[in-house]
């Protein structure tokens, strides 16, 4: 039983993460005139599309660490995060909470408003437009998907060199220091998403597997409208409308990685 489940998860991993959003692989379709037949991944009919997915987090809507829990839990549950690991050195975190001066170390004024100083902020992979993690990866196991700008990982290719962890200026990446499968809470297991093995790196994938079937990311869904998700390069997208109307900040934008996660404070 266990092994058939594993096999299924593996399959799901290949289609959702290895190849891209949609599971349909059409190996015979020729893409126009002179091109030879090139295998390509066909988008699912319901798949959401964008040039560069982006997120705006309206932090005014969250007041305490407790308010952030639903989003973190939603992510943990949909991605088989081994939350039972108690050794903080070995933690796997895709989305978590940090205080202002940790989330925005270069922006923390000496005297912050009391509310901001003690509030918790959601932090996750920024799906940078110039991702330094992608530059560093020696196997292209971490790559920026051209079709929609998501920085994805191929868990089956990663050699676990952890160069990407050194290269990410946001601490967004986690390494599986041991087999994570024993540490996934029984009720949280999601059979539609692959579990990982020891020795590979992982991080938030902007819920590529959900976008592929027309759903918004799990954390966005759980945020009750406080997190807005959309195409950064569609001037009419919800994200762009919110960005037009609100002053937003990004984490460490002076480093030039161009984070795609914006914060309204």
């Amino acid at each position: 039983m266990e092994s058939s489940r594993r096999r299924f998860l593996k399959l799901a991993g290949i289609s959702a993460v290895g190849l891209g959003t949609a599971p349909a692989l059409n190996a015979f379709a020729a893409s126009g005139g002179h091109d030879a037949a090139q295998p390509y991944v066909k988008k699912g009919a319901r798949a959401l599309r964008a040039k560069q997915w982006a997120m705006v987090i309206d932090t005014r809507r969250f007041h305490s660490a407790k308010d952030l829990e639903p989003m973190i839990e939603a992510c943990n549950k949909s991605h088989n995060i081994p939350t039972k690991i108690t050794n903080t050195d070995h933690e796997i975190k895709w989305i978590w909470e940090a205080e202002f001066h940790h989330a925005f170390p270069t922006k923390a004024s000496k005297f912050l408003s009391e509310e901001i100083e003690h509030k918790s902020f959601l932090v996750l992979c920024n799906h940078c437009e110039n991702p330094s993690c992608v530059r560093a990866c020696p196997t292209k196991a971490t790559f920026k998907r051209e079709s929609d700008g998501i920085v994805l990982m191929d868990f089956h290719r990663c050699i676990g060199c952890r160069f990407c962890m050194a290269a990410c200026p946001f601490g967004a990446r986690s390494f599986n220091f041991r087999d994570p499968r024993d540490f996934i809470p029984e009720d949280d297991k999601n059979l539609e998403f692959p579990t990982r093995m020891k020795g590979v790196v992982e991080k938030c994938n902007f819920c590529a597997e959900r976008l592929a079937v027309g759903k918004e990311p799990a954390c966005v869904e759980a945020s009750d409208g406080a997190i807005i998700f959309g195409d950064l390069y569609d001037p009419h997208s919800h994200v762009r409308e919110v960005l037009k109307e609100n002053y937003t900040i990004r984490r460490k934008q002076q480093l030039g990685t161009e984070p795609s996660v914006y914060y309204i404070v």
Partner: peptide, 14 residues
Amino acid sequence: FGLGITGLSRDVSW
């Protein structure tokens, strides 16, 4: 076991 037998962590990954 994995690299968990070392002193490495999420923060000090090398």
